[in-house]
Design a protein around this nucleic acid. Structure first.
Lengths: 162, 162
DNA sequence: CAATCTATAGTTAGCTC
DNA sequence: CGAGCTAACTATAGATT
């Protein structure tokens, strides 16, 4: 799978696929009560986006790393105070599906072979589906902590199929 | 279609659908030579993202509205200078697939009935597929101009199916 | 908790008009 | 230039292990 050579076909596909992604993003937001943003920049220097509940909401999360309304309060408390509250209302243990995908943050392709072994198994599984391609571009998954204190764009590279 | 009631199922779906979207975003980036970013915030206050070539690239475009390398130069020139250059290298006429989706920027639902008629036909077609749901949330498409001088998050609301 | 399977549902590339 | 179609492809909800 590679870049569509014909420019017209490429642009038509760009448009069609974008709507497909927006539709899926919309579905995700409804089914899972999530906030989702999608940004698409064509090389022709046009940009489009989808956002739920709005692209502004997503933008603000990225720009200002606003704590979410449902748990931000705790994070504003001192660590000791937060700990004691957490004892009263303990967090449920986390399932694999809600774990951060990875804690790797390397950006150099050379580092991949060893570091990639540290990926969580379910990511490896998915990553295996996305087989190597010749190009140097990469597929990135990242976990974004929403408190200002933590790195908001922690990133992991895996091999990319498309 | 509505929010999945069971929390476990909801989280599993969140995880599965996210990967599906990432896969499609990856495909889009390769086929169409585009830069794509996806941000997912679960209500459990976790956030994940996909980015091609990296989420950092997308983040920087949003944060700093960096002009793209392939056409940003022109936009930094004075209008008069730009005009004269554009005469020498005229832009090709645009197809429907590369037009900004809309030039509507309203945020009030009350304004929709009249304004929505201005949407391009292919957007109307898509929008019609996304039928009303009871909730007040909305599906947003937006066009993002990449020069600092223009509104980077111009937005249009249409009805949402999911 | 995590992986795997599968029937069903959904998507789209290329085509026609 | 856009809209519509559909065969082939792809994704996924729910079940199973």
């Amino acid at each position: 799978m590679k870049r569509i050579p014909n420019e017209e076909n490429r642009l038509i596909t760009f448009s069609k696929c974008r709507f497909g992604i927006y539709k899926k993003a919309s579905k995700l937001s409804t089914l899972c009560d999530a906030e989702v943003g999608v940004l698409d920049f064509s090389l022709a220097s046009k940009a489009f986006s989808f956002g739920h509940p709005s692209i502004e909401t997503i933008k603000n999360k990225v720009l200002y790393e606003n704590p979410p309304s449902n748990d931000g309060t705790l994070n504003l408390l001192k660590r000791s105070k937060r700990r004691s509250l957490e004892k009263k209302v303990p967090k449920p243990s986390k399932g694999w599906w809600e774990e951060p995908i990875s804690e790797l943050g390397m950006h150099e392709p050379e580092q991949m072979p060893t570091k990639i072994q540290m990926l969580r198994k379910h990511v490896q599984h998915r990553a295996n589906e996305l087989r190597t391609r010749a190009s140097s571009s990469s597929l990135s998954f990242s976990m974004v902590n929403q408190t200002p204190a933590t790195n908001p764009f922690f990133m992991t590279k895996v091999e990319q199929k498309y």
